[in-house]
Computed example of a mutant assay.
Amino acid sequence: MISRTFFTDILMIAVLIALQIFVLNRITVLGKFTPVLYPVFVMFYPFFRNRFQFLALSFLLGLGIDAFLYTWGINAFATTAIAYFRTLIFRTSTDTSTDFFSFQSLQWSQYLFFILASIFLHQLLVQYTEFFKLSRFFEIFLNVLATTAISFIFILMYAIAFKIKQKV
């Protein structure tokens, strides 16, 4: 298992920002939807690590994305929000009430629901904060659903490639 330190966390954030900005933002599905991969840092960050450091790193990740996309803190807000609510999302998806969290103990359906719920919440916050108009409510919601589905596939490929379920 790879030991995670503050330095490796910063390095992972830099790699995820570069991957998102320079590779994934150039990919569009159906000419409109862009996959989002950078929330994997928040989803798969070890539960036993310092919570305040985790929130600060999540904010830094979102702020890095915002710096390149000129989105004025929208991604920082959404990334920090899913970091803050990650434990609640995990408990909801696993029906657990203990204070010990582990991806190893999850069934695949719980694991997939955790990923799907996290990315859905992230996309909901990003897109409604950026484009919210009551007249475009359903259009934005369809964009959230489509982007969530596309991002879910990319995040699942990432999780399988790096065997996240066994390592975290």
Rank of each mutant, 00 (worst) to 15 (best):
T87G: 09
T87W: 07
T87C: 04
L88D: 03
L88G: 06
I89D: 02
I89L: 10
I89A: 03
I89V: 06
I89W: 03
F90Y: 01
F90I: 00
F90E: 00
F90Q: 00
F90G: 00
F90P: 00
F90T: 00
R91E: 00
R91G: 00
R91S: 00
S93C: 06
S93Y: 02
T94R: 03
T94M: 01
T94C: 01
T94I: 01
D95R: 14
D95L: 07
T96I: 08
T96H: 05
T96M: 11
S97H: 06
S97Y: 08
S97K: 03
T98E: 07
D99E: 08
D99T: 03
D99F: 00
F100S: 10
F100Y: 12
F100G: 01
F100T: 11
F101M: 10
S102F: 09
S102M: 09
F103E: 07
F103N: 10
F103S: 05
F103T: 14
F103Y: 15
Q104G: 07
Q104H: 12
Q104K: 15
S105K: 15
S105W: 12
S105V: 13
L106K: 11
Q107A: 15
Q107I: 13
Q107H: 15
Q107M: 13
Q107D: 15
W108N: 15
W108K: 14
W108D: 10
S109K: 09
S109A: 10
S109C: 05
S109N: 12
Q110D: 11
Q110M: 12
Y111W: 13
Y111I: 14
Y111E: 12
F113D: 12
F113C: 14
F113G: 11
F114H: 04
I115C: 13
I115Y: 11
I115W: 10
L116R: 14
L116Q: 12
L116F: 14
L116D: 06
L116S: 15
A117L: 09
A117V: 09
A117T: 10
S118T: 13
S118F: 08
S118D: 05
S118P: 00
I119R: 02
I119Q: 04
F120G: 05
F120S: 11
L121Q: 04
L121H: 06
H122V: 06
H122F: 15
Q123Y: 04
L124C: 04
L124N: 03
L124H: 03
L125C: 07
L125V: 09
L125Q: 03
V126S: 03
